[in-house]
Simulated assay, not measured.
Amino acid sequence: MKKLLYYSVFCLLSSVFWVSPSYSQQITTITVEGIGAVVKGDLAIAKDNALNDALRKAVEQAVGTLVQAQTLVDKYQLISDEIYTKSQGYIKKYTIISERPDLNQGILKVTIQANVSIGDIRNDLNAIGLLIERKGKPRMMVIIDEKIGGAESGYSANLSESETVIIQKFTEKGFNFVDEATVKKNMKRNMALQAIGGDDNAAASIGLEYGAEVVIIGSAVAKLAGKGIAGTEMKSIHASITARAIRADTGEIISSASEKGAIAHLDETAGGALAIKKAGEKLASSLIDQIIAKWSGEVGGQTTVQLTVSGIDFVSLNKFKTIIQSQVRGVLKLNQRSFTAGVAVIDVETKTNAQSMAEELAMKNFETFKVEIIGLSSNKIDIKVIPL
């Protein structure tokens, strides 16, 4: 009986999600409605939140059959996590059909028709552009400590080979960068060296100071590996590069990679630059894939928003957490990171985003205190508690 059940589920998954060799993706058209809260009459922000809600629901519906089938199979101990992971959905394009404000309920409803692809987003430039837009067009910056041969390592005010190739590969995919030349001329050397040395907080601070939401930090080395290849004057030069991408507002590492490259060349310096370029291209591709996967999961499922709450006592903190968990839309889980001297740090796993959550918190009735939003970024909300 179990064998028959396994076979039936396998056929279901194959018929719904198998893509023939002549097609690289399966596209599903979904019509769905999203809802956004209207705060202080601001219909524009409500529309943005309703649109994001609708886009998330469209992806959920497109992969919903697979999730239901997986749940059924898991009850009989057949693990299909790998199938689910490889069948993620993403928005290729969408059209807004209607938008209807309901001021009595304080909400705005947006209906969309979306084309959802079940497949790999990495080579779909239009979908990547839409993903970047939904993430608020985060700006990037890159700092790589580069050493070729006997040259001294350390921070340079000029763009290195590795920095140049990383910016080029990211830009080809539609990512936005701050003006690197201007930033490097004005950046404090000691901060750059701290970040290069592994201080993620220093890297995050640099990003915040120069308007970058994501900072790529790392090191690259090229050195001579051998001379006289096959009796010639050619030299064998090997390069290695390591980097990580850090969110400036929270300090979270969202991707990391290490790659190597090798080349034969007459000149050690010129060959070293080419070997670093080769390794840098592979590293950039790896970082891009990880970031796209991370952001796709956040806009299509859940993300983590960090709350820093100041001026709160222990009793009020417990009430604050209870209200967030039970009354704020989209909240899945709370993780309290710390509570020291009246300041609490809480990570909130949510299906919405920081903007939407901040608006809801500002409207909540906490009875014995009120909250004031004093800072807001893509992944972090700074809150001040005011006793009543």
Rank of each mutant, 00 (worst) to 15 (best):
L55Q: 03
G41W: 02
A37Y: 05
A354V: 03
L159T: 00
I383Y: 05
T232L: 08
V371N: 06
M140C: 10
V19D: 09
S24K: 13
A127V: 06
S205F: 09
L317F: 08
N379D: 10
V385N: 03
A69N: 02
V221C: 02
L283R: 06
I263T: 01
T31Q: 12
G34D: 06
A58T: 02
G197L: 07
A239Y: 04
M187V: 06
T350N: 09
G272Q: 05
I216G: 01
A195C: 10
W18E: 12
G198D: 01
E180C: 07
I374T: 12
G218P: 02
K370A: 14
Q327K: 12
I143W: 05
D249Q: 01
L317P: 02
E372R: 14
I346E: 08
A275F: 07
L55E: 02
I91T: 04
N123M: 12
A151W: 11
A192D: 04
D267K: 15
T95P: 05
T368Q: 12
G300Q: 05
D48T: 09
Q105F: 07
I229E: 06
K169H: 11
G330Y: 02
G36S: 06
I196V: 09
S255L: 06
K109N: 10
Q105L: 11
V215I: 12
D382T: 02
